[in-house]
């Protein structure tokens, strides 16, 4: 199994952090091989930002994503830049507060809205990571939670874990609705 995941958004949205946590959850929690790479501009905030995670139960030779399987767009610029690479089989998650698209196959998560409702707009990346965790194969809720717990100081971990949970639950509900509709 080789899973190629690409995150795109603006610098400062937590794009790279969410990819690192995904890598840690898969790598240490699920004991898979991972490789996480990133590219960003010289700015501290703003500017296009991309992060990639390759997950495999085999050796990873080429550590970048050559054929995207899962794509997560945090903002419109990121979506527009990479949506041309997508195939219909690919799984696409968008932060629907900031990304507008009329593709019904995409998973729409109002990440920024959920985060703002919590009073912490900066946890949007955890909401998105939560939704993503629900959808990915061979990845458990608690492994990602462990990764978040270990990555943050205790004072910040709680709100981030809460946001992660909100994203996860949101996607769970979406899937149930989809199931009952079909």
């Amino acid at each position: 199994m080789r899973l190629n995941v690409r995150f795109a958004g603006a610098g400062g949205q937590g794009v790279i952090l969410s990819s690192v946590l995904l890598a840690k959850a898969y790598g240490l929690g699920e004991d898979m091989n991972i490789s996480q790479t990133q590219s960003y501009g010289p700015e501290a905030r703003g500017g296009a930002c991309k992060a990639e995670v390759v997950i495999s139960d085999e050796y990873i030779d080429y550590m970048k994503v050559d054929d995207v399987d899962v794509f997560i767009a945090y903002n419109q610029t990121g979506y527009d830049k990479y949506c041309s690479d997508l195939e219909t089989k690919d799984m696409v998650l968008i932060n629907s507060t900031l990304v507008t698209t009329n593709n019904p196959d995409h998973y729409h998560i109002p990440g920024t809205k959920i985060a703002e409702e919590m009073g912490k707009p900066q946890v949007v990346n955890m909401v998105m990571l939560g939704a993503l965790t629900k959808l990915l194969p061979r990845l458990h809720y608690d492994k990602v939670m462990d990764a978040i717990w270990e990555d943050f100081p205790a004072s910040l971990a709680v709100s981030n874990m809460e946001a992660f949970d909100k994203g996860y639950r949101f996607m769970e509900e979406q899937l149930l609705q989809k199931q009952s509709a079909s």
């Binding site: 080789r2 495999s56 139960d57 085999e58 050796y59 990873i60 030779d61 080429y62 550590m63 970048k64």
Partner: peptide, 22 residues
């Protein structure tokens, strides 16, 4: 770092998958 895609290139030309259980 170029050694990484190069190794992947060799393996895919040979039709060999990456080794399991790294």
């Amino acid at each position: 770092s170029v050694a990484r895609p190069a190794l992947q290139a060799v393996r895919s030309a040979k039709g060999i998958r990456e080794e399991a259980g790294a």
